[in-house]
């Protein structure tokens, strides 16, 4: 598949290791994957960081933004801007929400009095695996049983956040984990927010192709870093009666390294 370099992502580069980070959990994690959200916090804490979770947070505003309702999106986004007053990095366990904040906030607040504030937030956003690898340079020790997994790369983590090999590099650190790559690793799973319900048949066809690809790897687990993709892929796998399970990468890494 395409190996063309990231062009829409904001690129990489790193920052000095901080003592404290903010954690933005995202609305899907909050409601559907809180264990994954907690695992992300604990992975950061295990690296000796102080993790701050502002209780006032809700959603990055992406759902309304993608549906064309920018005023409503801005209203929700604005409610997040004051939650991160210190100059600490903001770590997000979701490439899509991180991408919304990093690449779309400046545009969303164009001509708005809060633009500068939005840009300050945007400039500090990191996707979790990117942060673990690039800033913390984590070293993981696998305490789990042998298992074969595959990796689904979310569109926005790849193409808005510029996340490429970081998640796979983390998985490859795990001695008992065999990573088998998908044939079309970089192709969209068909979630697309409201796309899945506006065009359910096309979305189903797309996730159908994704499922075949996953099955072809012989993996028992598909790991991903975005809850939208996971809801879609695992929901479809389960509906089709496939035995493959889906896990958020934070939860998977936590599980493997804590020996649970």
């Amino acid at each position: 598949m395409s190996t063309a370099p990231a062009t829409t992502g904001t690129g990489t580069g790193t920052i000095p290791r901080p003592d404290t980070v903010y954690y933005f959990g995202t609305c899907l994690v909050d409601l559907f994957y809180p264990d994954a959200g907690m695992a992300g916090i604990e992975l950061l804490q295990a690296q000796g960081l102080r993790v701050v979770f502002p209780q006032g947070q809700s959603c990055c505003g992406q759902p309304a933004y993608n549906c064309g309702h920018r005023d409503e999106s801005r209203k929700v986004a604005r409610a997040q801007l004051d939650l991160f007053p210190e100059d600490w990095p903001i770590v997000v366990p979701s490439g899509s929400c991180a991408g919304m904040m990093k690449t779309h906030y400046p545009d969303l607040f164009k001509g708005d009095p809060d633009r500068a504030k939005a840009e300050k937030v945007a400039g500090r956003v990191w996707e979790l695996t990117q942060f673990l690898v690039q800033v913390l340079d984590v070293k993981l020790e696998d305490k789990g049983e042998p298992v074969r997994v595959t990796w689904h790369a979310s569109c926005h983590s790849q193409r808005e956040m510029g996340v490429r090999d970081e998640p796979k590099a983390l998985l490859r650190q795990l001695g008992n984990v065999e990573l088998v790559e998908l044939t079309r690793e970089r192709e969209c799973c068909g979630f697309g927010g409201t796309f899945a319900v506006r065009h359910p048949e096309i979305s189903a066809a797309m996730v159908g192709d994704k499922m075949s690809d996953i099955e072809g790897t012989g993996a028992s687990t598909v790991v991903s870093g975005d809850c939208g993709c996971l809801l879609n892929i695992t929901g479809a796998l389960e509906a089709a009666g496939k035995p493959v399970r889906g896990t958020h990468i934070a939860e998977f890494l936590k599980e493997r390294t804590s020996g649970r």
């Binding site: 809180p34 359910p200 979305s203 159908g208 389960e238």
Partner: peptide
Amino acid sequence: WTSARVKPRFAGRTLHEMA
């Protein structure tokens, strides 16, 4: 959504509560 997938499963508790 459920034409091709099972319903999204709410976790019973939020990350806010866990934190």
